[in-house]
């Protein structure tokens, strides 16, 4: 096995993928050396990593892990350490970790997790689990929770244009009417929101950092209460702040998914190349006080299904 690994390091970049796959066939899944790179030390990332480790524990597979945190260590130092550690796989948690690993590491498979919109960071040795919940899943939940809402408002910028297309496709598929407007600057947001408000039953936020400054989120939530338009937030934090509903992933399960993916890659059963999977567990949270102020009635069985309920 070691001989194969040495050959893998000596290969040219153009045949990295082939060699990875060849090496995978020969991998005797007894012990894996994996380097874990954190974007920062926050609880969701830790949950993801715990899920990752739990998967290997379930499989009773020895995991030799090296942990690095980009917030605490210099990236250069981390990647020179990684070269010495010679891991079988690099597991990154968060966008920053993936981006740096993708730039520095070309000859080792990288499995990422907790990354939004990972399409922009695809690569031949990169695979992982996205943080994006597929729009159709969200819409299906919305249909269940807010069955009367048919017109969904959306404001997007060039940054979130790809996501917009996904949402548009999902809406078309599930027969929702998407009232959308593209803006080039956040300054247009209030005006556009005012324009589309009369036409929509609820408003869906997108993870767009160019638009959703905290102050604009505040404005949006105030406007939603004023115009009685429910806001579908990006996570339970937004629900807590005043959005009606939001969908969240199970971060531990994302790690578990990433573990599965890693094992498959290490054992050669999965192609690495830009393989990206969506989170398989989706949960939602509700704000009952917002619902009351908006005049939205949510059935009790739905409330029971919610992972978090605010404003009881």
């Amino acid at each position: 096995m070691c001989g194969i690994r040495k050959n893998l390091f000596n290969a040219k970049c153009s045949i990295i993928l082939f060699l990875i796959l060849s090496q995978g066939v020969c991998f005797a899944a007894e012990q894996a050396t994996i380097t874990v790179v954190f974007s920062s030390d926050i609880e969701p990332y830790r949950q993801s990593y715990e899920g990752f480790k739990a998967f290997f524990d379930e499989k009773k597979m020895a995991l030799r892990a090296f942990e690095h945190d980009l917030d605490k260590e210099d990236a250069g130092v981390i990647y020179s350490s990684i070269k010495k550690e010679k891991p079988d796989l690099i597991f990154t948690i968060g966008t920053k970790a993936l981006q740096s690993a993708k730039e520095k590491i070309t000859d080792t498979p990288i499995v990422f997790s907790m990354v939004l919109n990972p399409g922009a960071m695809s690569g031949p040795n990169v695979a992982g689990v996205s943080l994006d919940i597929p729009p159709e899943i969200k819409l299906k939940h919305i249909r269940r929770i807010l069955p009367r809402k048919k017109n969904i408002g959306l404001i997007y910028s060039p940054q979130s244009e790809l996501l917009y297309e996904d949402i548009l496709n999902a809406c078309t598929e599930l027969k929702y009417h998407l009232v959308s407007k593209k803006i080039s600057s956040k300054t247009e947001f209030p005006g556009v929101l005012e324009d589309i408000s009369p036409q929509v039953d609820c408003f869906m936020m997108t993870p767009d950092t160019d638009i959703y400054y905290p102050k604009l989120v505040e404005y949006l939530l105030r406007a939603s209460l004023k115009d009685k338009i429910p806001v579908i937030g990006l996570s339970s934090n937004y629900v807590k702040a005043g959005a009606l509903i939001a969908f969240d992933c199970d971060y531990g399960d994302i790690g578990n998914q990433a573990g599965e993916l890693a094992l498959e890659i290490l054992s050669g059963g999965k192609q690495v190349n830009s393989c990206c999977v969506s989170p398989r567990k989706v949960k939602f949270s509700l704000n009952l006080m917002t619902a009351e102020r908006l005049g939205v009635k949510i059935p009790p069985d739905i409330i029971k299904q919610a992972s978090e309920v605010f404003g009881k």
């Binding site: 974007s39 926050i42 969701p44 968060g94 966008t95 920053k96 981006q99 907790m114 990354v115 939004l116 919109n117 943080l131 940054q159 993870p207 950092t209 160019d210 959703y212 990006l234 996570s235 934090n237 969240d248």
Partner: peptide, 9 residues
Amino acid sequence: PLVSEDMIL
């Protein structure tokens, strides 16, 4: 934008 997941997390 480099850590857009922070919007969610």
